[in-house]
Amino acid sequence: MSPQSTPSLEKSALSVPHLISIRDLTPADLDLIFHFSDQFREVLSRPIKRVPSLRDMTIANLFFENSTRTRISFELAEKRLSADVVNFSASSSSVKKGETLLDTVNNILAMKVDIVVMRHPSPGAPVFLAKHTDAQVVNAGDGTHEHPTQAILDAYSIRERLGRVAGLKVVIIGDIQHSRVALSNIFCLQKLGAEVMVCGPPTLIPRHMQTLNVHVSHNLREALAWCDVANVLRIQLERMDEGGGGMALRSFPSLREYAMVYGVNRRILDEVGKDILILHPGPMNRGVEITSDVADSGQSIILDQVQNGVITRMAVLYLLAARQRGPELVN
């Protein structure tokens, strides 16, 4: 590059080569991602909603578990950055024929893929992948472990609406036990200086929660009275039925009872009488963890979250790609 190093050209890079866990990121990394997200928000308001930055890169979306929202959001983010995109879902692939994860991925990497975005039912699968392949890995959810981009977009949406994250009180309501969103959110919010509480039935809150410096409550009213922001999680019925035990293995007696005790509805919000910001990572079970009159109200930012998902993922992919040297410099 030319030696014109104007002092005002600010430079900054992520501290990690992969995005596997929020725990690996520094607060400065998160601020950098937010800064880039702000700029990509403007890009999406243009008549031509795309920038050419990643035009020489190929990104593979490997979804070993069902997903609509996250996959579309990643795919859109990749296309807005002009990357070439390959999609893969486990249901229509040779995973069904017994191929191992490493073999599947190596086969895809043999086709010259630069970044792998992966969702996998096993916690730790992205770490394994990052160790054994040359591509950069973005975790799009690994089992009940982490879902870092969801936490980033949640924090970004809070910051967008309230102007800051530091000093806020955030409660995460619902199924903490089976939720990767909860764990990533706890790490992310704490790194940004927020105070976090989890709230739900004792059967859905893991016992180690106190070690993460998180408040625990089993009373929804109390939790709502305490917080500025409530992140309402989805009741993951499909995970609770695992093991084939049906009702016997469920963590609460019935959906109706859950909705009565832990469902966020207009009545309880009015009783608490605070203007609480409501988030939900989707897909919603309307009438179970959240009612329509809350989900569709002005204090819910659920659709903002979806929009911010694309721009924060653009920022993550751009910043990760920036850590790789261009193709002609590799030779």
């Binding site: 430079k11 900054s12 702000d38 020489d56 261009g326």
Partner: peptide
């Protein structure tokens, strides 16, 4: 892009 050690930070 990807030819620098550090990516440039965009402004508004």
């Amino acid at each position: 892009f990807r030819r620098r050690d550090m990516p440039l930070k965009p402004a508004e």
